[in-house]
């Protein structure tokens, strides 16, 4: 018998690193050097702040390269990084570095410099994880709680724990796997949460678990 599932929530405090970039090269240097929390913040901020939008705007790096430097080709490549493939924040960082290095190696007559008011500001975040009173002992209780937790809690169990805390899979998949519900766990692990709103994701997960309960 597996442990009950304890729901948590997470809240972020955004920090400013006092570091700016006005060119692709400065952005690249920053991406190489800032802490992992900063990479996580800039690749997930839009997901958190625009969780109701689909399609949501891309990551901060892509948005800035396209919007402020007008380099739509590089912006599109950065926006298309398949974040769900990465299980460690440093691997994700490496992918951004590779794309920017490749771009810089390509010949261009000149590289744009953004206006001073448009500079990229590196930020970071501190993550607070708080246990909630809600505990699920079986799939029925899980469904009931999942329907009413905050988007912050949903976000924590799906995005934060998998990539930022580097647990490999989202917490829901891990719990159902431990319960022996391998098929459901597999379906939950295969979800791409980056291309759906958080409310859409909640409904998707509820649908998967409900079908699983009905089929038993």
């Amino acid at each position: 018998m597996s442990e009950p599932f304890r729901f948590h929530t997470r809240l972020n405090l955004v920090e400013l690193l006092g570091r700016r970039a006005g060119t692709v090269r400065e952005l690249l240097t920053g991406i190489r050097e800032v802490p992992g929390a900063s990479i996580y913040h800039h690749t997930h901020r839009f997901l958190q702040q625009h969780h109701f939008l689909s399609p949501e705007p891309p990551n901060d790096f892509a948005y800035w390269i396209s919007g402020s430097l007008g380099l739509n080709d590089i912006g599109e490549r950065l926006a298309s990084i398949d974040t769900v493939r990465y299980r460690r924040i440093n691997d994700l960082r490496t992918r951004y570095v590779e794309i920017l290095e490749e771009a810089l190696a390509a010949r261009r007559n000149s590289w744009p410099v953004c206006q001073e008011s448009d500079e990229f500001h590196f930020m970071s975040c501190r993550t607070f994880i708080i246990p909630l009173p809600a505990v699920a002992r079986d799939a029925g209780e899980f469904l009931d709680i999942l329907g009413r937790i905050s988007v912050n809690s949903l976000y924590y169990h799906v995005f934060e724990s998998r990539l930022w805390l580097e647990r490999g899979e989202n917490d829901f998949a891990v719990w159902f796997e431990a319960r022996g519900d391998h098929e459901l766990a597999g379906a939950l692990a295969r979800l791409d949460p980056y291309t759906i709103t958080l409310e859409g994701l909640r409904q998707e997960i509820i649908g998967l678990v409900r079908r699983h309960v009905q089929d038993r």
């Binding site: 809240l11 972020n12 405090l13 802490p35 992992g36 929390a37 702040q49 625009h50 969780h51 109701f52 970071s124 975040c125 501190r126 993550t127 607070f128 994880i129 708080i130 246990p131 930022w164 805390l165």
Partner: peptide
């Protein structure tokens, strides 16, 4: 609604006050 209401402002202040007592990027309360 998600980012600029007074409730988010209060939350940020509470997190700021709490953060003064911790060093790490990930804080378990």
């Amino acid at each position: 609604r998600a980012n600029y209401l007074i409730t988010r402002h209060i939350r940020d202040y509470l997190l700021l006050f709490l953060s003064l007592y911790f060093e790490k990027d990930v804080i378990r309360l």
